[in-house]
């Protein structure tokens, strides 16, 4: 990788100062995407600001019945956290299926949500659960956060500190994993939340994670796998690449939606 300067700040404020002082700096959390990208010379940040071990950045609290998951909480820790398993088991199930065990020991929820890879798992959960992205500056509702692939509402120097989830009545996640990378070829997260049924699709959209209004309407009327059958899923705006054509992805959205509802 190209030369970079590593920093390990002791607080979020210190991390923000470092990023502010170095316009080409990047936040390093678990590094499971950023470091491979740097090794391939696809990213060359002047500075790396490691937030993984800032006190208070990792861990889960369920105060007041709302899950607050620290940004630096590793996938493996979300997957086996008692509060997550109790209040949002679909989220634990999703975390348990990211990458492989060693990746889950390092990769973080904040890193995944900040990166917003169009095939990552977490964005679908954050969007379907109507979660809140908490940063060092503000709180961002999921609907206002995702702005297209690898693009988010985060401003320069803004750092995610936590993801806040109000437990859904029920939720489920199903993904058709790319056999090689384990990223979602198509992943569908369905949730019955206080603000209605929400369905988010990852892996399929040419512009990143998106909500599927047709599925939401059908599942709001009847939250059953059969309800998915009557929904027409268009291939328009879906990705076509060497792994799958858009019409195949459209078909998979229906299949994964059925499985996700059955699992909820």
């Amino acid at each position: 990788m190209y030369a970079t300067t590593y920093h390990r700040p002791g607080s979020v404020a210190e991390a923000a100062t470092l990023i502010g002082a170095n316009p080409e700096a990047k936040v390093l959390a678990g590094g499971q995407t950023l470091l491979p990208t740097m090794k391939q010379h696809l990213a060359a940040p002047s500075d790396l600001v490691d937030i993984r071990r800032i006190p208070g950045m990792a861990g889960v609290s369920a105060a007041g019945g709302v899950l607050t998951i620290g940004a630096a909480t590793a996938h493996a820790d979300v997957a086996r956290n008692a509060d997550v398993l109790r209040h949002a088991p679909a989220l634990a199930c999703l975390a348990a299926g990211i990458g492989d065990p060693a990746v889950r020991h390092m990769g973080t929820i904040g890193g995944s949500v900040a990166n917003n890879d169009p095939a990552a798992d977490y964005p679908s959960a954050v969007l379907a659960l109507n979660a809140t992205v908490v940063t060092n500056r503000r709180e961002i509702a999921a609907d206002a956060y995702f702005k297209g692939m690898f693009t988010t509402a985060l401003e320069e120097g803004e750092i995610i500190t936590a993801i806040r989830v109000t437990p859904p009545k029920r939720a489920g996640y199903a993904k058709f994993a790319n056999p090689a990378s384990r990223y979602a070829l198509v992943g569908v997260f369905v949730a019955e939340t206080a603000s209605g049924v929400r369905v988010a699709v990852t892996g399929a959209g040419a512009n990143g994670v998106f909500r599927h209004k047709g599925l939401e309407a059908a599942l709001a009327a009847s939250f059953t796998p059969e309800a998915v059958d009557g929904v027409k899923i268009s291939a328009e705006g879906l990705l076509s690449d060497i792994h799958a054509a858009a019409d195949y992805r459209a078909h998979l959205i229906g299949v994964m939606a059925r499985r996700a509802v059955a699992a909820a």
């Binding site: 590593y6 390093l28 590094g31 470091l35 060693a102 020991h105 390092m106």
Partner: peptide
């Protein structure tokens, strides 16, 4: 794969400085 603080991680995907 090595163990860092008791957990299996891919040592090619972690900086030495990060394991300080």
């Amino acid at each position: 794969v090595v163990h860092v603080d008791g957990r299996a991680v891919k040592s090619c995907t972690m900086l030495a400085a990060g394991a300080d």
